[in-house]
């Protein structure tokens, strides 16, 4: 099952919250930050894909 945008975004938010609240042991920090960065990349790509699709679909709608 592929991850949804919302899943990724929620996970990202949780990670940032954890780091912010210093709940992450230092040794785990690089892993967490790498994961957070991957989640951001995923979200950006997903968002860009949706934007592109939206442009195509909306433009394809017959004007009249």
């Amino acid at each position: 099952m592929t991850m949804t945008y919302q899943d990724a975004y929620d996970q990202l938010t949780t990670l940032v919250d954890e780091i912010e609240n210093e709940q992450v042991p230092l040794d785990e920090l690089p892993g967490k930050i790498r994961l957070a960065t991957e989640l951001i990349t995923f979200c950006q790509e997903r968002l860009r894909a949706v934007e592109t699709e939206y442009q195509e679909v909306i433009e394809k709608l017959p004007k009249r």
């Binding site: 990670l15 912010e20 960065t37 950006q44 968002l47």
Partner: peptide, 9 residues
């Protein structure tokens, strides 16, 4: 939202 989370990270 995504930009804000990125910045927050």
């Amino acid at each position: 939202n995504l930009d804000r989370e990125t910045e927050r990270l």
